[in-house]
Design a protein around this nucleic acid. Structure first.
Lengths: 148, 148
DNA sequence: CACAACTATATTGCGCACAATCTAAATGTG
DNA sequence: CACATTTAGATTGTGCGCAATATAGTTGTG
């Protein structure tokens, strides 16, 4: 066998395992999200808005999703163009933009409900292992995002 | 408490946990990789080349990394511009490009050796949990990449 | 050998990600 | 109240990531 044990081997890198798994899962979402007319980051923004129910500032969405305004501003503009969200000024602080759902944005939730279960069925682990993995990933995100 | 249990909640989505953790770790690599003059995907390509030792075709690198030529071609061009790789034609099949390391590319490995340990020290789990997580992520990548 | 089918890589176009910078609005201090 | 500081978001520039398409080289079949 030629499998090496170098510390730089791809198969030994947790960073690469994360990177590859994340991209693979996002690709799997694509065929489902195409039917909703959403990209994956757009879907995440919609999840955040459905979850919070009240209009959110760009910074609040960024905290929820781990993204900054340079990423979110164009994503939100495209969601606005598709008529799913509105971006109005905060009356009490004109620097802030409040991102709220339109009726069409709220209605889309019913369709989106069916997406996760289709994907979840393909995950190779279930139940306890699934939740343990979620917890570990949460710990990693927190550990590495603490210094931002 | 206001924590909801909707199936669409961000905190219940394994896809989001993966997405967030992966981006957080890539960001953590940035400060280390800046010192090598590499981006994260460029670093992955170098890992693949260091590991294989023989020049690789674009498609072979793509299989190793889970990326296609649309992504790899410009990455490889930039690595060539920095003098780390060469891209020559395969004499026996002029359609193929063989990507090989330059002396500078080989030399960079010594510096890169020190990167993973600095990052690994920050992972909130070690030993057994670490390896179990690696295995689970590998299973996910395989399960979702099988249909490409 | 002609030529259709196939294969490897490159190109194009769009949409993120993110650092650095900019603008405007709010806040603190004397 | 003047004015420096801070804060929220937008803008700019670079580099992925990927689908769709294009191009050139190779192989199979008659």
């Amino acid at each position: 066998m030629t499998a090496s044990t170098s510390p730089l081997d791809l198969d030994n890198q947790l960073c690469f395992a994360l990177y590859r798994a994340s991209h693979a899962v996002v690709r799997a979402y694509k065929s489902e999200l195409d039917q909703l007319g959403l990209t994956y980051p757009q879907y995440l923004v919609m999840l955040a808005l459905w979850q919070e129910s009240k209009p959110q500032g760009v910074g609040q969405l960024g905290d929820l999703l781990g993204l900054d305004s340079g990423t979110l501003t164009p994503v939100l503009r495209r969601l606005e163009q598709r008529g799913l969200v509105v971006r109005r000024r905060d009356e009490h602080d004109e620097r802030r933009r409040l991102i709220g759902l339109t009726d069409a944005g709220r209605d889309l939730r019913a369709l989106a409900e069916k997406v996760p279960e289709k994907i979840a069925a393909r995950f190779p682990m279930q139940g306890k292992d699934y939740h343990q993995l979620m917890a570990q990933l949460g710990d990693i995100a927190q550990a590495f995002d603490s210094d931002r």
